[in-house]
Design a protein around this nucleic acid. Structure first.
Length: 575
RNA sequence: CGGACUGUGGCGCAGUAGUAGCGCGCUUGCUUGGGGUGCAAGAGGUCGCAGGUUCAAUUCCUGUCAGUCCGACCA
């Protein structure tokens, strides 16, 4: 491709709304064009990378027997009403009506649609297992789109769905797709880690599910990883324990102490000169269960933090949130001085499992400006239960007691065992071998294709620009001509043709009247793996052409004749 | 949903009560030709939108829309 004929513009300055490298570089290198909040047009070079990612994804999925289909981007609302997600999706789903006032939405995901295909075309167990996938546009009206392609509203996603007669079949397929995902990310050439995750809105929270996290410091997800035990999980559900336990046994009865104006953990502990881990943080939550408001006092060690996702999976209810000031007051509690003792029957108590219920702790006295010195949960509280609801800390150790580290990741893939969540709600029946109907079990598997590219750039760039992994670079060679005397133009053209006929993908910077510096800067910004420089100086003096490697900066000068073979060799060495 | 900030040429920004500039980019000519070359001449904006105040508003006020950032109650 000749640059003189391509629509391409680069920018020296970052757009004001781009904060992280992948967003800045995709914009500056002219790969994408902003259409609106969280909406991006894909420009020619970007599209080439996108196609390469798609190709790798297709090959790996086809390889494990998935069949590619394409579903509609717009799906009828009634399908979502049937599954019950019309309400649950909330504002995330963009809805509208057609001229007949029928509800429609732009697919944020396609479980309903694929199940609809399945139930109308599959009748017998003989068709199972079945795995379908598509690479298609999704729209999610995110609360806060940001970071360019990392959290856009419209994006390209590969979504796959599998149907099985039993758990065993689902497990087998799950293993296959797990490996296919590993292959995909490895082939693209990114560093990643597979973590246990929470099912979230797609599945029930106890579903088996893994996230594929590309490691990058600007990732939006926090993951904990224990090298020694191999345990890795999203912090949403990560189990870990404190490296040390503070024991504070006492036989003393609880004792009130005046703590005027000390309404926060740190001020109380500083005032009483005790460690924060010997105090308890008591938070009041509200949720709805059986159409009734429920209140739950959630208690962690003073320096721990409640993990609301873990909490949400423990309570059997919806609309979990912290109680507001008014609700706290109505229940007779005083903000800043809350304690788990002497509560009314309607408030249940949940202690985090790091709390030793035989230990003595400092808690609020449920009385303004007073705390209690020696509250022993087991002795002084009624109606309590215990569960792991704390957020993992980097100072924690794994359950086995090994050190852990906390890193940031970009979720590029997520696989779920859905069970019968959708096949049941959408009333799918398949005739079994025994002549009886059964409800098939299901899995779903997503890869953010556009996000994958952003993640690649996030992981692979330097101060000059993008450094494409060779697998998905828009081109393999960036051929620059630095020629004043027109009689050498032909030689550069010939080299271009020769590289192409040698099977290489070449972007030829043949833009006239542009200085070498300008071209080099553009080449570095765009980040094509190899740059071939046809310059008069070297060519006339020594008959040589310069080849440089974007990632390492390595340069070598070779004779015109051997440019092709040298490029081919260098290129394969980069793979 | 709450808070803050910002809307001025394609991008990044300045500025002013008397209808606008700078840098980058773009066009043309000359120049330069191994690290965004220099010079000159141009094109391009009803200063987000709607009201109000005023002789006069891009500037002040009000509303509205949009964008960006932060937060979403850790007692």
């Amino acid at each position: 491709m000749k640059l003189s004929k391509v629509l391409w513009q680069t920018f020296k300055e970052n757009p004001s709304d781009a904060e992280i490298p992948s967003h800045q570089l995709t914009m500056r290198a002219g790969l994408i064009h902003k259409a609106g909040s969280g909406l991006y047009n894909y420009m020619p070079f970007f599209l080439r990378s996108l196609r390469k990612v798609e190709k790798i994804v297709r090959e790996e999925l086809d390889n494990i027997g998935c069949q590619e289909i394409q579903m509609t981007v717009i799906t009828p609302g009634e399908l979502w009403q049937e599954s019950g997600r019309w309400e649950k999706m909330g504002d995330l789903m963009l809805r509208f009506k057609d001229k007949n006032k029928k509800d429609l939405c732009i697919s944020p995901t396609n479980e309903e649609a694929v199940v609809d295909i399945f139930r109308s075309s599959v009748k017998s167990y003989k068709d199972l297992p079945l795995a379908l996938y598509q690479i298609n546009t999704k729209f999610r009206d995110e609360i806060r789109p940001r970071f360019g392609l990392l959290r856009g509203r419209e994006f390209l996603m590969k979504d796959a769905y599998s149907f099985h007669k039993d758990k065993k079949s689902l497990d087998d397929f799950y293993d296959n797709i797990y490996k296919a995902y590993q292959n995909i990310i490895s082939r693209i050439g990114l560093k990643y880690i597979v973590v246990e995750a929470d099912g979230g809105a797609m599945a029930s929270s106890d579903a088996k599910t893994h996230e594929f996290q590309v490691l990058a410091k600007n990732g939006e997800d926090t993951i904990i990883h224990c090298e020694k035990s191999g345990y890795a999980a999203n912090i949403e559900k990560a189990k870990s324990k404190r490296s040390q336990k503070v024991e504070r046994q006492t036989s003393e009865l609880k004792e009130e102490v005046e703590t005027p104006g000390k309404s926060t953990i740190d001020s109380v502990c500083a005032f009483l000169n005790i460690a924060e881990s010997t105090s308890l943080k008591c938070l009041l939550y509200k949720y709805i269960s059986n159409n009734k408001d429920q209140f739950l006092m959630v208690v962690t060690l003073g320096d721990d933090t409640v993990n609301e996702i873990k909490l949400g999976t423990i309570i059997k209810g919806d609309h979990l949130r912290m109680a507001n000031d008014q609700e706290i007051e109505t229940l007779g509690l005083i903000k800043g001085y809350i304690g788990p003792q002497g509560l009314s029957e309607e408030i249940k108590i949940l202690f985090d499992s790091e709390i030793s219920i035989k230990n003595a702790y400092v808690v609020g006295a449920n009385k303004r400006d007073f705390h209690i010195l020696n509250l022993v949960p087991e002795r002084d509280c009624k109606k309590y239960f215990q569960a792991d609801i704390r957020l993992a800390l980097s100072s924690d150790v794994s359950i086995e007691g090994f050190p852990i580290e906390i890193t940031k990741g970009i979720e590029v893939g997520h696989i779920f065992q859905l069970g019968d969540k959708y096949t049941k709600s959408l009333k799918v029946n398949v005739l079994g071998e025994d002549g009886k109907n059964f409800i098939p079990t299901m899995g779903c598997y997503g890869i953010g294709v556009t996000r994958m590219i952003a993640a690649a750039i996030e992981q692979s760039h330097d101060e000059k620009g993008i450094i494409w992994p060779v697998s998905i670079a828009p081109f393999q060679i960036y051929l620059v001509s630095i020629i004043k005397d027109e009689k050498y133009l032909k030689d550069a053209e010939d080299l271009y043709d020769k590289l192409i006929s040698g099977g290489l993908e070449v972007l030829f910077d043949d833009r006239p009247k542009l200085g070498p510096g300008h071209k080099f800067k553009d080449a570095e910004l765009l980040g094509i793996p190899l740059r071939v420089t046809f310059g008069e100086r070297d060519f006339i003096e020594n008959g040589t052409i310069e080849i440089s490697v974007r990632r390492t900066g390595e340069q070598r000068k070779v004779k015109l004749d051997s440019v092709l073979s040298e490029c081919q060799a260098l290129y394969s060495s980069l793979k």
